[in-house]
Design a protein around this nucleic acid. Structure first.
Lengths: 144, 144
DNA sequence: GATGGTCGCAACCATATTTGTTACAACGAG
DNA sequence: CTCGTTGTAACAAATATGGTTGCGACCATC
């Protein structure tokens, strides 16, 4: 699948900010986070912007500015992050409209819509079971 | 997400062949299926080629050739189709290697790998619950 | 109020993926 | 032998994703 890495990068950034704050720091800069992720700071700002709109992080501007968590990592789940950074549905429908004169062509989209809906709901429930605190714990538990 | 439509098109094609065979026909051509899907026959042949390699359909060449089901629709699930047409994992890791000097950078991939694995397994179980026969039934039940 | 560090955002480029198209060889029923 | 179809390569077009540059807005500090 044309899988993208947005959920991964967003989780990485949140875990980084969370750990940084545990160490007593107020705010993290997009440049610091980009260093850990190994990408460009603008990529981080774009993603964190999505997370801010979803109420997961806050940003300060001006000198000594940066990003901080808006809520505890324990109250944030991968579903919150997923919904913040992934706009579309999991499975796409046809690019062009199927032949509506054909029984299958006219019925396939309603049929799949119902089926896909149920599957995505299960995926959401599963994502909602994982908190970002759990992610950070797993990160810290990984052998070096 | 860079959601693609392969699962959708493959399910459409299988439902079409299944219905066509129910109507007493032996084989369906990629051109007929492409007509219902509203795309190019080569796109259909490519996808059906994947399904053939997975043992879901068979093809005959020569004159009067075409495609037929290798198994009953009732014994085929969306998981079979998904595995046949979707190579990669659901969520991608970082494009570039994270900073291994950083605790988060070095631990994030192992952590997410474990978490993603469980989530994908749940998705698979859910896909496995839907047979292609159910898809066709839903297609035929859709109001015109 | 000037300075400097940082976010916010737009614009653009590079790359990768997906889908559509053309072309043609291989095949096999008739 | 002929004709209709698959199999596959090659390429084009469209879309998505991620990286980069540039610069205005903001604000803590001096």
């Amino acid at each position: 699948m044309s899988a993208n890495s947005r959920l991964t990068i967003a989780a990485h950034a949140l875990a980084w900010i969370g750990l940084y704050q545990r160490q007593g720091h107020e705010v993290a800069t997009s440049e610091q986070i980009a260093g850990s992720v190994n990408t460009n700071p603008v990529v981080i700002r774009r993603l964190l912007g999505d997370l801010r709109r979803a109420g997961l992080v806050e940003s300060r501007r001006g000198a000594g500015a940066g990003w901080s968590l808006a809520r505890e990592l324990g109250s944030m789940t991968l579903l919150d992050v997923y919904e913040a950074v992934e706009p579309g549905p999991l499975f796409a429908m046809h690019r062009a409209r199927p032949d509506q004169e054909c029984v299958v062509g006219s019925g396939i989209q309603p049929a799949l819509r119902g089926i896909y809906e149920g599957i995505e709901e299960t995926l959401r429930r599963e994502l909602a079971r994982v908190t970002l605190e759990k992610v950070l714990d797993d990160v810290l538990a990984a052998p070096r």
